[in-house]
């Protein structure tokens, strides 16, 4: 309820801002980018660097969630909408989309773990605490130590959304993650815990996987740049920029910058997968 209210507030204030800018005749120099809270930090980072390329264009990034961002793009209250989920058919009809990055989440275990593959259902059952021994998924007879991230983490949000760990009841989102799961903050901390615990399982950004942990295949597909780009790996999502019709020249300039080599370098710095 509160979230919706604040989303509406922001939408109103964004539109007021645009109206205000219009009367001051500077709207052609401002690009409003509104939407997904996962894309927003990246967009913010891109805009800071974009400032160096084109000082005249001001980029205003607002983080209100994917759905509100898509709506803002359709309504025209934002020049660019941001989404970290694929569009529904109806939404896709109304909008032009540009993929600026891909986010993949790898499921990782200790390098000494025998398990190489998990199905989506097994992964769900492990994180909900229904499967608690590795022997039930083809590993040794040992307890499974479930490791998750803190509330509010974008990686946790995406992981739960895509795997179905997050459920909606009465318009509210509940997590079904096993309450005994160990909670750590940050990709690095998850890796450290997994590296130290031979029975651990966790999830981290694909970009931060290294030798200290081992990725497992999900439904038979390993998380690599290729499988994620091909859309074969399950736990991945696109970062989309959305415009209604052709973007304004300023919006286009910002999108072009993100897709340029320099912009994609920033994507890589954020541990996301580049698109070209």
């Amino acid at each position: 309820m509160k979230k919706k209210f604040s989303a509406i507030c922001i939408l109103i204030s964004v539109s007021l801002l645009l109206v205000g800018c219009g009367s001051a005749n500077t709207s052609d120099k401002t690009v409003s980018v509104v939407g997904s809270s996962s894309v927003a930090p990246l967009a913010e980072y891109e805009s800071e660097n974009f400032l160096r390329v084109d000082k005249a264009i001001e980029v205003d990034v607002q983080s209100v969630g994917s759905s509100s961002g898509i709506k803002a793009a359709i309504d025209g209250t934002a020049n660019i909408g941001m989404s970290s989920r694929n569009l529904s058919e109806e939404e896709a009809k109304e909008l032009k989309e540009v993929v600026i990055a891909l986010d993949g989440i790898a499921v990782v275990v200790n390098p000494n773990n025998k398990v190489k593959n998990l199905t989506k259902d097994e992964l769900l059952a492990i994180y909900q605490g229904k499967i608690r021994n590795w022997k039930d998924v083809g590993g040794d007879d040992a307890p499974i130590v479930v490791i998750s991230r803190e509330e509010g983490s974008g990686t946790r949000g995406a992981f739960e959304e895509i795997t179905g760990l997050e459920i909606e009841k009465n318009d509210k989102k509940y997590t079904t993650v096993f309450s005994r799961a160990i909670i750590t903050d940050g990709n690095g901390s998850v890796k450290q815990n997994i590296a130290l615990k031979k029975n651990g399982i966790g999830y981290i950004s694909v970009g931060s996987v290294d030798d200290s942990v081992k990725s497992v295949a999900v439904d038979g597909v390993l998380p690599t740049e290729e499988t994620i780009k091909a859309g074969e790996y399950l736990i991945s999502r696109p970062f989309l920029l959305l415009t209604k019709g052709d973007p304004t020249p300023e919006a286009q300039a910002f999108i072009d910058f993100i897709l340029s080599d320099e912009g994609q370098k920033l994507v890589k710095e954020h541990n996301y997968i580049t698109v070209n």
Partner: peptide, 20 residues
């Protein structure tokens, strides 16, 4: 604690169930 005590508890007391 993370590097020394937890692995110790994990190995000798918790039977591999964590240690945190």
């Amino acid at each position: 604690g993370l590097m020394i005590i937890i692995p110790f508890i994990d190995r000798f007391l918790a039977g591999g169930a964590g240690g945190n």
